[in-house]
Design a protein around this nucleic acid. Structure first.
Lengths: 134, 134
DNA sequence: CTGGCTGCAAATCTTTTGCATCCTG
DNA sequence: CAGGATGCAAAAGATTTGCAGCCAG
């Protein structure tokens, strides 16, 4: 795919498969999710390649690592600034595209240089709500 | 300590040691930090007891589990609502005690019931700034 | 006394690493 | 054709679990 040439890294078939899986993906998958999905087309795919590719993409700023799920890292190919809402039961994550004004005065930052911020919203998704009722 | 009786769970010496370690602690320690600190007074302390106690405290709402550090869970005995600023280099976490208005319209939440939110600020702490310069 | 807690070790899960081989640029 | 990427397996960390014995209430 031409659109990936800009990335400036070797475009192996495995990486292309991961990029295709990411394309338009809003699921915030874990490394294992990616491994399982891409293994279907690449039976020899290894975790080393998944993590290696994620690391490469992360260094280029094409993927974000999410720490919102306590059990494992999740990855987000949508690099536009945005926030997340996570279901506390099933851990499903959806995007919140909205800007918030969350400035902090210097006396609160104890000499830190600020780089950015990310808001985690917590909630219960519709599916888990209905399960809870039954 | 009388103040802990309210917790309504067995006050073993090990748990008391963990509670004392937590008392006023602003370090946001990991399970391993807790284990190492409390092991000094309790050489037989085990990880099982640390995790067991953390789980019990968490269920009572006396400790928060932070997911902000990608490498491990961190724990916060300060249960007043507040936010965090993390150094992206050394992972030091400091508290941000300020309220922000971050309401989300219903059309963004896709049917989720909202429970709460938490803001992660990213930055570089003074110590890591000076190391970077040298 | 008794049920919950402790401590140890083994197991699990996620992520990382070493290294020989492969293949993109 | 060289250097980076792959795949496998082993290793490293973090967290969980099984279970026999212990002790706070």
């Amino acid at each position: 795919m031409e659109k990936y040439k800009q990335f400036g890294f070797k475009l192996t078939p495995q990486r292309l498969a991961i990029l295709n899986y990411f394309n338009g993906n809003k699921e915030h998958p874990s490394a294992d999710d990616i491994y399982r999905a891409v293994s279907k087309s690449f039976p020899t795919m290894s975790f080393a390649t998944v993590y290696n590719t994620l690391e490469a993409l992360r260094n280029k700023g094409n993927v974000l690592e999410l720490t919102i799920d306590p059990n494992k890292k999740r990855y987000d190919p949508n690099t536009m600034p945005h926030h997340h809402l996570i279901c506390v039961k099933c851990k499903r994550i959806i995007d919140i595209h909205k800007e918030f004004s969350v400035s902090v005065s210097e006396d609160m930052t104890q000499g830190f240089d600020l780089i950015g911020n990310h808001i985690e919203f917590y909630g219960v998704c519709p599916k888990c709500k209905s399960i809870a009722l039954s």
